[in-house]
Nucleic acid binder design. Structure first.
Lengths: 195, 195
DNA sequence: ATATTTTCGAAACAGTTGGTTCAAAAAGGT
DNA sequence: ACCTTTTTGAACCAACTGTTTCGAAAATAT
């Protein structure tokens, strides 16, 4: 799993640390607002090494999105359970969403729903990636809905997009500076409203 | 109301047309992704005139956000009625949201929830503006909820943020390329699930 | 005509952008 | 010791960034 080069000058940076740092820079500043120069410093990674490893800024960003999905979104989807009544699991899920979007004030909201989404306006590659990430979360929600024995007022796939929309809307509101406890109350109300 | 200069060389551009064009450029490309050069061409407005009229890029963008709110968001809030049962008004509202976010494929989603929201990550001025715009829509929704005689399961201010979150989530999904009819179905389901 | 007022066009500004190049450095393998 | 492999730093690149400046242009008022 871990790549272990036997020869050559040893790498002066840590790959995971670098991705984590790049994630925060993009998250805070946006895609166009994050110059390579700044990324290099934050990642503790020389320019040449960055380009050798990631190719260009686009692919670095896509790697960051992937890292973000693995470290932030997968645990979040896992919080859906099932580990109790649907309403409780949804409440826990929204709670985690709010926590993610408000935890660090310097990286408010969601990297995907704010940064990738903005960049998807003109870049078809980013647009496709955004669609994939969105679909992925909706699939997880739909699966959880189907595992419930409650009667749903609409097809699970449709209701899943409703719930995903609430979650994304919460992260947008977090980026505007809304306090976490207010957003948690909104999440609770949403979990209750959508059975 | 209309400014009518009596003397001097006549202006070669139309002020409203210019704002409309700038709106589309920012909407599609994002704040950092829209160079002054491109804006000038689209607005049919010389650089010097742009800087004389708007000061700098930040203030131009804020003027664009204001124009967008007046031309796109106010009509949208107006569609809330009340002109029927709450459920029907909400369905109409979500329908208008989807229409706005999908009407022109070259400007997908919402200028505020994608472009301004991304730019609000580091710019405190933009963050404050985003908060104002978000609060404004939520106030409108809360007022509509209070005018309903139905029993709500939570305070109107909280439910208003839930509904606003759904609306914003819909615009994000539109920016990822989701077809309008799918999003309309999601809007209907949200309005129905919402008692 | 002349003066006045406003807009325009183009050039110039310094700083930054994403990206490439390449030789030196630093390690292991033989 | 010498070769091989990988990483690194620094210089370099052309293109672009937001912004300022200023004289010419084009209209009205006198």
């Amino acid at each position: 799993m871990l790549e272990q080069p036997k020869r050559g000058r040893p790498r002066g940076y840590d790959v995971t640390d670098a991705l984590e740092a790049a994630t925060c820079v993009f998250w805070a500043n946006g895609y166009d607002g994050a110059p390579i120069d700044v990324l290099c410093r934050a990642m503790n990674m020389p320019r040449a090494s960055l380009y050798q490893r990631f190719g260009d800024k686009q692919r670095l960003f896509l790697a960051v999105v992937d890292y973000y999905a693995k470290t932030r979104l997968e645990p979040l989807a896992h919080s859906l359970g099932p580990s109790g009544p649907l309403k409780d699991d949804l409440e826990a899920f929204f709670g985690q969403v709010v926590a993610l979007a408000t935890h660090d004030p310097s990286t408010p909201g969601c990297l995907i729903s704010s940064v990738l989404c903005d960049a998807a306006g003109t870049n078809p590659l980013f647009k496709a990636e955004l669609d994939r990430r969105y679909t992925s979360l909706e699939n997880g929600l739909a699966e959880r809905l189907r595992q419930s024995d409650e009667v749903l007022g609409a097809p699970a796939e449709v209701l899943a997009v409703v719930l995903a929309s609430v979650a994304r809307g919460l992260t947008l509101r977090a980026r505007s500076g809304a306090p976490a406890d207010e957003l948690r109350a909104v999440g609770r109300a949403a979990a209750r409203a959508f059975h």
